[in-house]
Design a protein around this nucleic acid. Structure first.
Lengths: 345, 345
DNA sequence: TGCTAGTCTCGAAACGGTTCGATGAACAGG
DNA sequence: CCTGTTCATCGAACCGTTTCGAGACTAGCA
């Protein structure tokens, strides 16, 4: 015979009933020592491995976690690295709990709705992780109606369990570092205010200034899309109109746009203006000058999202969010004396 | 009742047998017009959606495709963006054919073996896509023994169906561009020779020179790991010893290391040395000067890998590989007059 | 000795679909 | 009118597990 052995084959070889074999194989109680041994041995000899689909159908759990990514990723995460680090963290947590990760990528929010529905209808996942909840969250009602466990990555406006960076802290760390370097007039190039993380970061910016007893000047808070070009334009236009010695940028790409604009205006980085940004990426480490950045630890974002989802699946009621702290990675662009020499890497 | 409707509920409501309902719902022949209509209507009214697990168990197909990534991704793909573009392409093709994508990330090759085995044993996938086959390919014998369909991304040494870039063409395109810009002494900073793509690219480099009637000088072919630091060291050391006006780098990160070394030696890019590299990434577009690069179209790499896998699953015998062409993206670093001004982007 | 509680084992019934073989009706050709 | 197809439908078996209820056997205790 060529087909792979089933639990029946194992049971037969061990001379027990199928149900007993099942108990033995799953380490359940009420199986005698010898019986368990015989079953295990038979399984071993036959090269038996349970058929996951059958298992899943029988006990109603799929052991599958779905990742839904609405909105074209290029637009959302400035850098694609975000996505892969996120996924790796998710994967690790999933593996720790015996879950598989399945991907449901959508290019638009409507497509995301479709994918959420399909996942729910087909009962193909035990829970969902959804990145970048927006204001509308059109899938939310489907999720709630079917009571399927889910976790957001990113702070949603609605009440829902989520995992996100502590974005207040993220910008506070960056700005505080500039203050410690002696800067007192620090511009902030933020992202669009409809992202919750941008709102939070403004709070952190103000907090850092307040802590240091520095005044908050609305004129020094700028805003641009997350692209290099948008950042360039904004900085090109606003930089000459204000006095500042440092700039805190909301993303690595925005920082690059800003630096290019400053250089075009004859401003040197970091000598004339120091720069710190959010997102520790390939770009920040390889750029010249290399960029001091706040690392978002996306790996752990993914890791905890899955952890939290598994908790939810297991019925634990845990409403409060998980907030991942950022971490400052010092490089050349902040112009600090303590800049590390990792060029030789 | 709260449980979701099954096909039995549909059958009962439509007044037909379960088997008939199944035929009707799946668009199979031998169902009369009215019967089919009644079944469909009943399904509609009940809000019936087939239970994917049950379906899969019944017909023995999982409709799942597994992606196995051996070897820490950071090491393998210089940039993380590679991974996410690959995945998106895979996802699209999978969606087109009604498959799901499940992730099996391994940090080492041994772990990859474990994951391959687990996937096979649990019958949880219909086929596997494995990135970056190495010389040893330890999972290969498991794959062949169980006759599970699989496709490699990257050219393996063993005989096996794979999808890869046309790496000979990739470097030929890059080098040819430099030649067209008037350069005659072109250095080549390649990656480690144990990667098949590096071997292929050397072939392309030589081909481009030969086509233009330029001599091949072994002294101008350098080699470094795929990191910035390694590239820096090699170029720092070798650059002064040779005469050349252009450099072709095997990756974006290597190009950055090379440029940094050149600049440290007082060589300007692109004025004194023009640079073209492989990998069109965030880094190449945002770097100053922005880097002319050969785009690898990873999206299509992933797309065709899945396409090919599905063909294999469907029993089509298609041994020859799919080769994705590269495409030159012109920017500042090659110093060509036709450089586009996309700064405003 | 009789009763109860606890172990161990078993067969059967799920889980929710697909597929196979049988059955009957309608219809064609001879 | 008989026979052989083709079409439409049905019931039952099956995919490979888990779980449930029941029965048998063993101790422990009055």
């Amino acid at each position: 015979m060529n087909r792979s052995p089933t639990i029946r084959d194992v049971a037969k070889r061990a001379g027990v009933a199928v149900s007993t074999a099942s108990l033995a194989l799953n380490g359940k109680p009420y199986v005698s020592r010898e019986t368990r041994f015989r079953v295990l041995q038979a399984a071993e000899e036959l090269g038996y491995h349970p058929h996951s689909l059958a298992k899943n159908l029988a006990d109603g759990r799929t052991r599958n976690l779905g990742l839904i990514t609405p909105i074209s990723l290029e637009h959302l995460f400035a850098s694609a690295g975000f996505f892969s680090r996120l996924i790796r963290g998710m994967h690790r947590a999933a593996a720790e709990h015996g879950y598989n990760l399945s991907l449901h990528i959508a290019e638009s929010e409507e497509e995301a709705v479709t994918r959420v529905r399909a996942a729910i209808r087909g009962r193909s996942v035990d829970g969902l992780i959804i990145t970048n909840p927006t204001v509308t969250c059109p899938y939310l009602k489907d999720l709630k109606r079917h009571r399927i466990p889910f976790v957001f990555i990113g702070r949603p406006l609605e009440e829902a369990t989520y995992v996100d960076n502590d974005n207040v802290e993220v910008s506070r760390i960056g700005v505080r570092h500039l203050i410690e370097c002696g800067h007192r007039r620090i511009a902030f190039l933020n992202g669009p205010a409809h992202f919750t993380f941008c709102v939070d970061r403004l709070v952190g910016y103000r907090a850092a200034l307040a802590e240091a007893g520095l005044p908050y000047e609305e004129d020094l808070v700028w805003q641009s899309d997350l692209t290099e070009g948008a950042a360039y334009q904004v900085v090109w236009e606003l930089a000459p109109k204000h006095e500042f010695t440092a700039l805190f940028a909301g993303s690595d790409v925005q920082a690059v746009g800003a630096i290019r604009a400053l250089q075009a205006r004859g401003v040197r980085v970091p000598q004339d203006v120091a720069v710190v940004c959010v997102n520790n990426t390939d770009l920040t480490s390889h750029f010249i000058p290399s960029l001091t950045a706040v690392d978002l630890h996306e790996y752990w974002l993914g890791y905890w999202a899955v952890k939290r989802l598994v908790q939810t699946i297991d019925g634990e009621r845990t409403e409060h969010p998980v907030l991942i702290p950022g971490e400052l990675v010092e490089r050349e662009s902040c112009g600090c004396p303590s800049q590390d020499q990792q060029r030789r890497g």
